[in-house]
C-alpha cells in the first residue's frame, strides 16, 4: 500500500521528463522504421505529411531473392543483400556458439582450479577490451591473407576467417562474465556429483552449465551483437561472396542519390535481431554491462 502510493506521488514535470527521454531515445529508431515503410519519391518530396500509406515495397526490393513469392513492382532483383543476410546469420551464430563453448571451459578452469587468479584475468580482460578493431586491421589482414593458408585457400575471404577473429575478440569478455557466474555455483553440488562417480566433464556439462544459464544468455547476446554488427574487419576479410550486411550497407552508401527507403529497410533488418534480444533479455544485458564496472 505505502510503496504503491509512493510510486504514484510524483511531480507532473517528472512524467513530462520521462516521456521526453523515451521519445529521444526511441525516436530515431521509430523514424527509421517509418522511413523504411515509405517510397523514396515520397521521402524526398518537399511536402511530407505524417499521414502516409505504409508499403513493404522497400523490404521486398531488399529481400527479393529470398522471398517465396515474386514481388510486384521490383523491376530488377539485386541478390547481394539476401546473400549477405545469410552470411551474417551464419557467421554471427557460429562465432557465438564457439565463443561460448571455449569461454565456458576456460572460465570454469580458472575458477575451480585456481589458475593465475582473478586479478590477472580481469587485467587481461581489460587490456583486450581496449584493443580497437582498427588496430587489428593491419595485422589481421596481413596474416589472414598470407599466412593462414591451407593449400591455395587462405583464411581471408572465407566465413571461417571472420569467425576466427570474432571468437578471439570476444573470448576475454565472455570468460570474464562467465567466471563471475561460476564463482557463485556452490562447490558442494559438484563434490556430491564427483562422489557419485561423475568425471570432470560430466560435472561441468550436467551440473555447472545448467546453473549458469543467465550468464550464458548475457555472454551469448554480447558476442552475437558484436559479430552481427561489426564492419571494419568484415570489410577487410570478406570477398563478394562472403560479405556481411554491414559491409553491403556501407558499400551501397554513395555521396548522392541514396535510395533512403531501401537503405533504411536494410538498416531495419540489421537492427531487428538486437532489438528482439533487448526486449527478451534486458535484465541479463544489464547484468553483463554492470558486471565489468560495478563489481570491479
Amino acid at each position: 500500500m505505502s510503496a504503491q502510493s509512493e510510486a504514484e506521488r510524483q511531480h507532473p514535470a517528472f512524467y513530462a521528463l520521462l516521456v521526453a527521454l523515451v521519445v529521444m531515445s526511441v525516436g530515431p529508431i521509430v523514424l527509421m522504421l517509418i522511413t523504411s515503410l515509405r517510397l523514396n519519391v515520397e521521402i524526398m518530396s518537399d511536402t511530407s505529411s505524417l499521414l502516409f500509406v505504409p508499403t513493404l515495397r522497400n523490404y521486398e526490393a531488399v529481400l527479393c531473392d529470398v522471398l517465396w513469392y515474386e514481388p510486384k513492382g521490383v523491376d530488377s532483383c539485386d541478390p547481394t543483400f539476401g546473400r549477405a543476410l545469410g552470411n551474417s546469420l551464419f557467421i554471427a551464430t557460429i562465432a557465438t556458439i564457439i565463443t561460448l563453448v571455449l569461454g565456458c571451459m576456460a572460465a570454469y578452469a580458472i575458477v575451480r582450479f585456481r589458475f593465475y587468479g582473478r586479478d590477472g584475468l580481469s587485467l587481461m580482460t581489460l587490456l583486450m577490451r581496449m584493443v580497437p578493431p582498427a588496430v587489428l586491421l593491419v595485422p589481421v589482414f596481413g596474416i589472414w591473407t598470407f599466412q593462414f593458408c591451407v593449400g591455395d585457400q587462405c583464411a581471408a575471404g572465407t566465413h571461417w576467417g571472420v569467425i576466427l577473429i570474432y571468437v578471439a575478440m570476444n573470448l576475454p569478455f565472455v570468460i570474464w562474465i562467465l567466471q563471475s557466474f561460476i564463482v557463485q555455483v556452490p562447490i558442494q553440488l559438484e563434490e556430491a556429483a564427483r562422489i557419485d562417480g561423475a568425471g570432470p566433464f560430466r560435472v561441468f556439462f550436467l551440473i555447472v552449465l545448467p546453473i549458469i544459464r543467465p550468464g550464458l544468455a548475457a555472454a551469448a547476446i554480447f558476442t552475437f551483437r558484436i559479430a552481427w554488427n561489426e564492419f571494419l574487419l568484415a570489410n577487410a576479410l570478406t570477398d563478394r561472396k562472403t560479405r556481411t550486411v554491414p559491409v553491403t550497407i556501407v558499400n551501397s552508401l554513395t555521396e548522392y542519390n541514396i535510395d533512403w527507403g531501401v537503405i533504411m529497410a536494410t538498416g531495419m533488418l540489421l537492427a531487428i535481431p538486437p532489438i528482439i534480444f533487448t526486449f527478451i533479455a534486458s535484465r541479463q544485458i544489464i547484468t553483463g554491462m554492470t558486471a565489468g564496472a560495478v563489481k570491479g
Binding site: 527509421m32 554488427n229 564492419f231 550497407i249 537503405i263 533487448t278 544489464i286 554491462m289
Partner: peptide
Amino acid sequence: FILPMMIAPIVVGLM
C-alpha cells in the same frame, strides 16, 4: 534506454 547501444553503429550512422 539500452536499445541505442545494441543497434549496429553502422545503422546508428544511417539514422
